[in-house]
Design a protein around this nucleic acid. Sequence first.
DNA 1: CTCCACAATATCGTATACGAAATAAAGGGC
DNA 2: GCCCTTTATTTCGTATACGATATTGTGGAG
Lengths: 236, 236
Amino acid sequence: MRDRQDRPGVAARRPLLELVLPVLRDAIINRTLPPGERLSEGDICARLGISRTPLREALRILEIEGLVTMAAGVGAMVTPISPPDLHDRFELLAGLEAIAAARVAGRRDPATIRQILAIQRDMESASRQGSQEDYYRANDRFHQTIVEAAGNEVVLNAHRTAMWHVYRIRHATNAATPLKPDAARHHEHIIAAVIAGDVDGAFVAMRRHLEDVSDLILGRLAAGWFDAIDRDAPPP
Amino acid sequence: MRDRQDRPGVAARRPLLELVLPVLRDAIINRTLPPGERLSEGDICARLGISRTPLREALRILEIEGLVTMAAGVGAMVTPISPPDLHDRFELLAGLEAIAAARVAGRRDPATIRQILAIQRDMESASRQGSQEDYYRANDRFHQTIVEAAGNEVVLNAHRTAMWHVYRIRHATNAATPLKPDAARHHEHIIAAVIAGDVDGAFVAMRRHLEDVSDLILGRLAAGWFDAIDRDAPPP
DNA sequence: CTCCACAATATCGTATACGAAATAAAGGGC
DNA sequence: GCCCTTTATTTCGTATACGATATTGTGGAG
């Protein structure tokens, strides 16, 4: 056997599933396909120009990820926003990031620590300047960096999936959220534990931090009940 | 093309996917379909009496679960045993059960605590009598009970999936594993923290316990490298 | 004897077709 | 006028067909 799929010029034949899945997923996350939206297979096939076979595989995967809900014989819909479900997903997230933090603390890799410290400085800088956008971006990087640095592919995948659900309600969380000094203090604890190689300390600190974040976001979601009536007729 | 579901008495209108998926999954877990086995769609369809459409959906799901590996244009195979991958899954498991333990500790539900204490007594009893079988069964119940008592559907699902991978190498772990008194002591720490409502304590104790279990099982797997050569030709 | 090229075969990816069930709609009974 | 029943239409679940690609087997050259 010679060149398998690395033939020059000709792009390796990619299954339509891999092309369609990100498109649908992104549409659900950015609410182009809003929560509760009914997903007619025929419609989407026509829209995307594919047949039902690869589409159904994509829907099955999205169902496992929790972004789509399928009822046998009835069809698929974008999973509605559910605060209890989100609470569970935040709890999972806490476990995942805590494990990652523990692993990072166990390693004490200098490059990783430098990276985290730099992000921390960015957050402080953004906080001083009151730049919400930069602050949230750096915050995201903080968590993402730790999970990636843990080097656990399985945890990373689970984390990515959980985050999709967070992204879907982000519009209700970032908008007008005051910069909480708590987050910065929590991050300091986590960083201190990581630098000290305190595995349990990092593990616990990360869980507590995520618990706080969860309470904050879910509280905000409940206060605004943004999504609960998304598909209902708005009052005059 | 054969008799579909027109026979009375058989489950009336369930999607074939839901029927086929557990069959394949069980076969993979109990090694009827051994690691590395190539999964020809035609063969399995003929064997199960279904067409390729529902089978492919099942294979996609199994791929997400990590039990099947699919290469585009090549086909599917039972995911080979990989100690590094198992290590990652154990780490995930530690995060999941730690979160569950923390939640259970936060609740301090009397019924749950009674249940856990009863299981603990069973384990001690089995240990004294040297009944390995009973010991492992009670140990399983200990962990399962905590995860279920946490009441987090998302964590429970992730835990179930992770455990499938553990079950698949169980033959290499339970066989001739001496009863470790460490496990009992660890369990005591976890239980004490749960009863005391010590959320962080339960969280940390469970992670440490799982880390130990992981080391034990992976060490045993490495020592025997049971699966690494499963599909290779034995030397003459 | 080994290795490479080429043909034959098997298998995959996708599209399409058809029967069955659920939802929507229309009509009649109360 | 309202509700229940019955019919019609849409949509799903599964099977099958077809083109494309990887794998395997065979023959010949070095």
